[in-house]
């Protein structure tokens, strides 16, 4: 399983480099056909490159630190039996910690559901994991500014919590219906 994953990642890497190569060639061809665009394209790319170079290494270091120092079972430990406002708050904080890609959150969420964690908390946790990650917010701040970042963050938290509660209602309601059917 682990070997498979490594093999897949390796193929993904090769695909990315091939893609980069073809885009570079396309760019060179395009710029030799339209030499007047050369200045604009190169200076724009260069500006964005500098902005990325200023923060990306630091973001990666922060990611690395969290990955090594924050234990993976912290989520199960704290989210397992938290409920109410505290549960929602913990779900957001634990989801926002930079601890890896979304696909490793699914088995965690599944384990928590089996243990009896609230569906609303799990949905909030998954959504926070997907889109309120701390490093993401940092990069958003860098490129889109503080106003954009803060407003989107607050709105996202509000609506993700609403979504969690709605999904919980729908699932519970569906279960009840199913339960009646099963009883008959």
């Amino acid at each position: 399983m682990k070997k498979d994953l490594k093999e897949k990642q390796k193929r993904g890497m090769i695909r990315d480099w091939v893609l980069l190569g073809s885009i570079l060639i396309t760019t060179v061809v395009l710029l030799s056909i339209f030499p007047d665009k050369k200045g604009a394209v190169i200076s724009t790319s260069w500006d964005f490159f500098i902005e990325m170079a200023l923060i990306l290494p630091a973001v990666m270091v922060i990611l690395g630190l969290f990955a090594v120092w924050v234990p993976k079972d912290i989520v199960v430990k704290y989210l397992g039996n938290a409920s109410g406002i505290r549960g929602i708050f913990l779900a957001i904080i634990l989801g926002a910690l930079p601890t890896g890609p979304l696909y490793i959150a699914f088995p965690m969420a599944a384990a928590l559901l089996k243990k009896g964690a609230k569906i609303s908390n799990i949905i909030v946790f998954l959504s926070a994991w997907a889109c309120i990650k701390i490093p993401q917010e940092m990069v958003e701040l860098q490129f889109l500014g503080v106003q954009f970042m803060i407003s989107r963050l607050i709105l996202t938290i509000i609506f993700v919590v609403i979504m969690g509660l709605v999904i919980e209602r729908i699932i519970k309601w569906g279960d009840k219906e199913g339960g009646v059917e099963n009883a008959i």
Partner: peptide, 25 residues
């Protein structure tokens, strides 16, 4: 942690260049 940071940096690097070139174009 540093090694991990290095590895993820190298992993994301081609995508970084791809996005930067696309933005330029």
């Amino acid at each position: 942690s540093l090694k991990m940071a290095g590895r993820s940096f190298i992993k994301i690097l081609p995508m970084v260049f791809i996005i930067i070139i696309i933005i330029g174009l």
